[in-house]
Simulated assay, not measured.
Amino acid sequence: MAFPQSVRLVEVGPRDGLQNEPTPIDTATKLELIDRLGSAGITHIEAASFVSPKWVPQMADHREVMAGLKRRPGVTYAALTPNLRGLEAALESGVDEVAVFGAASETFSQKNINCSIAESLERFAPVIETAQAAKVPVRGYVSCTLGCPYEGEIAPEKVADVSRTLFEMGCYEISLGDTVGVGTPLKAKRMLECVAGQVPLEKLAAHFHDTYGQALANLYAVLEEGIAVIDSSVAGLGGCPYAKGAAGNVASEDVIYLLNGLGIASGIDLDKLAETGRWITETIGRPNRSKVGVALGAR
């Protein structure tokens, strides 16, 4: 396989990046973050999560966020909707796209959403059907594709099974998540090869965390195989509440620097993106985990 000519970046910072912040972040800050990301040229932004505020208090203002967006033409504003109630609220809020979350690990599924993998997929069926009836595309996430905090190694065949099921249920794209960031390039290639045997490669995305500092190497490995959609988070914000020690997502700035160096188009202004990363980390009092963002800021 050859590198793709262009890559679509899915920016998950406003949702995946902020959801575990212990101190409440006001709606205005979230809206400014989303607007700055759009201004930098990002066309796909995960803006909110329609989950119970009891579980994820940081996302309690999901309706206010969706209502307050300065919508830019050509930008998709997506939200996580794990159940029908969340989906109905998201549809009322004018969401452009929704996402459901499965896992390749039984234990992680139980700890994360209190049900088995099979039960989680059953729960998603009415969500996907209702979204499709409303002509809203559904993206499917698969967690723990390269390892699990409870089970350790995960067989690529399990990842392929869950991915195929979500795809057959109607998800237009499957995002393969290295939730704990334990993957290495060869593992990433082997997992992708197995999944691509069940789901067309052009329907797959990579969502790699950087716990062990391998995310960029893993992305390079799957780019070589033709992956053309990458999930990332500005300034490397985020982690996973059910995976102790898991660092944030790979930083969007670092991904764009890599893509630029490979001559792969993204349509994103790296300087504006880095400025956004500096602004949000200063605003919420977090370290900037983007190596590129820190280096550009020091210039």
Rank of each mutant, 00 (worst) to 15 (best):
L216K: 00
G181P: 14
A90R: 02
T81P: 00
P24A: 10
Q5W: 08
N114S: 12
V255F: 03
V159D: 01
R278N: 14
T23Y: 11
D269P: 11
G13A: 13
I128T: 10
D271P: 15
L296W: 12
Q58P: 11
A60W: 01
M169E: 09
S290W: 09
A155C: 13
E225I: 00
D35K: 06
Q110G: 12
K70L: 10
F124W: 08
V136H: 06
A247F: 09
P82I: 00
T283A: 13
Y77C: 00
V229K: 02
R164H: 13
E32P: 15
V222F: 03
S116W: 12
N288F: 11
Y141Q: 03
V229P: 01
A79K: 01
E119P: 11
E64A: 07
E46G: 01
G226S: 05
E122Q: 13
K189L: 05
V182H: 03
H44K: 01
E11M: 01
I154W: 02
V65R: 03
S93R: 02
G38N: 07
A28S: 15
W279N: 07
E224D: 14
K272Y: 10
P14C: 09
S49T: 07
V195G: 00
P24V: 06
G267P: 01
L176D: 04
L166F: 09
V65Y: 07
A265G: 14
A160P: 06
E253G: 15
A78G: 06
T165K: 15
A125G: 03
D178C: 05
G239V: 04
R36D: 11
I154T: 13
V199T: 09
A28V: 14
T27G: 12
E106W: 14
R63V: 14
Q214P: 03
G248V: 02
E202S: 11
S105T: 15
Y257I: 07
V10I: 14
G41V: 01
V65G: 07
I264N: 09
R286K: 15
S105Q: 10
T81M: 03
A134Y: 09
A160K: 06
L87V: 12
N114P: 05
P14W: 03
A228E: 12
D96W: 00
L9D: 01
H207C: 02
G152M: 11
L204M: 11
I268C: 04
C171T: 05
R139K: 07
D231Y: 02
D61L: 06
F101P: 05
M169Y: 12
M169C: 04
E32A: 13
G147L: 02
G245P: 12
K187A: 14
I113R: 07
A247Q: 10
E157I: 08
P287N: 11
Y220L: 12
P57G: 10
E253N: 09
A2N: 13
L31G: 05
A118G: 13
S49M: 05
A215Y: 03
N112E: 10
P22Y: 11
E173C: 06
A215P: 13
G238N: 02
G239C: 08
V162E: 04
V138I: 07
D35E: 15
T29A: 13
P57I: 04
S233C: 11
G197Y: 05
L262H: 08
S290T: 06
V182N: 02
A103G: 12
D96S: 05
L223W: 05
D254C: 08
